[in-house]
Design a protein around this nucleic acid. Structure first.
Length: 320
DNA sequence: CGTTCATCCTGAGAGC
DNA sequence: TGCTCTCAGGATGAAC
């Protein structure tokens, strides 16, 4: 669920409350939360104990804490929130919430960091830090601009492209890649290997702002149109970040459990039947990539061509 | 290579 | 009240 703005809200909370402290005990309960950690949950917990938290970093929807074992080299505790993951700061003595799968307690006795994840699509893993393949030469930068990823990036994040809010993001390069793709433009926006951080909400919002239907083929759009679409993705996520992200319910909260307010500013996502803010036409919903897309049929006309807009009569699209 | 599909889970809400 | 069905801010790997 959490997309770039929501994950950045969480990262800032972790930076404010956890960076600079030393982990006393780590608890990782159940194999599932550590399924991306090859050596298993016990190894993960054991290696975290005694480590200092140096930094909280993020690319797209991936978050990682730079942790340094006593006398060791810094490494990355990679946290992906999946669809329902939360990182919560709470008193060590407080009763853990349901679906708490991992906890960091600190040697100062202060607030603990807990990972709560209802649907368990998220997880923790410990990875090496590697130089950012998308940002060569970063080390040559002068001291006046600190590098965005001062310790490098987590190894398991290197297949993810830069997100639109980081300096390494090269919009012109992404436009060139898009222009060659023969796929629906929404699919491309959701491809984390092309541009990261965009999920279903902000893809629909960017498409609405740009007046482009998500099933339009990338190659059918001009480079300026593609550039505008990316700019809208960037600005809508920046605006959402200003408001603390999008929270429809208590599942999407910051480290203190508070919701964001961008849901009130949504123009497309989830707005089926409501009048378009530009033209008053009722918004529509359709299936796309086994998910939902919301759009204005007037501002974002469907592409003509191979049918798919209205399911053929009698065609059973539901599985099972 | 690109695309579709199923899968990993729990819980909320709708409809009956 | 309770059952069944559908849906949900994501990522991944198999199969076509």
């Amino acid at each position: 669920m959490p997309e770039l703005p929501e994950v950045e809200v969480v990262r800032r909370g972790v930076a404010a409350h956890v960076v600079g402290r030393t982990i006393g005990r780590a608890t990782v309960s159940g194999a599932r939360v550590a399924r991306r950690h090859e050596a298993g949950p016990e190894d993960l917990a054991r290696r975290l104990a005694g480590s200092a938290v140096l930094h909280a970093d993020r690319r797209g929807k991936y978050l990682w804490l730079v942790v340094q074992p006593a006398g060791g080299v810094p490494e990355a505790l990679v946290v992906h929130l999946g669809m329902s993951g939360q990182l919560l700061v709470s008193p060590p003595e407080a009763q853990p919430a349901r679906h708490t799968h991992a906890t960091l307690d600190f040697d100062d006795g202060g607030p603990s960091l807990r990972f709560v994840d209802q649907r368990t699509f998220g997880g923790w893993s410990l990875r090496p830090l590697v130089p950012d393949p998308h940002d060569p030469g970063r080390t040559a930068e002068g001291p006046e601009r600190p590098p965005r990823h001062p310790y490098g990036i987590a190894a398991s994040v290197s297949h993810i492209a830069p997100d639109p809010l980081e300096p390494a993001f090269d919009r012109a390069a992404v436009v060139r890649s898009l222009k060659r793709r023969r796929s629906a433009v929404k699919r491309a926006l959701l491809d984390q290997g092309l541009v990261s951080g965009i999920g279903n909400i902000y893809a629909d919002e960017a498409l609405w702002r740009a007046g482009v239907h998500g099933r339009r083929e990338c190659t059918a759009l001009s480079k300026p149109a593609l550039a505008r679409l990316l700019e809208h993705a960037e600005t809508v996520m920046a605006e959402a970040l200003e408001l603390g992200g999008t929270s429809f319910d208590a599942l999407y909260v910051n480290v203190n459990g508070a919701s964001g307010y961008f849901d009130r500013s949504l123009n497309a996502y989830g707005q089926v039947g409501r009048p378009c803010a530009r033209c008053q036409t009722p918004l529509m919903r359709e299936d796309f990539m086994n998910r939902s897309s919301f759009f204005c049929p007037h501002c974002q006309p469907r592409p003509r061509g191979p049918r798919k807009a209205s399911p053929a009569p009698g065609a059973l699209r539901r599985r099972r």
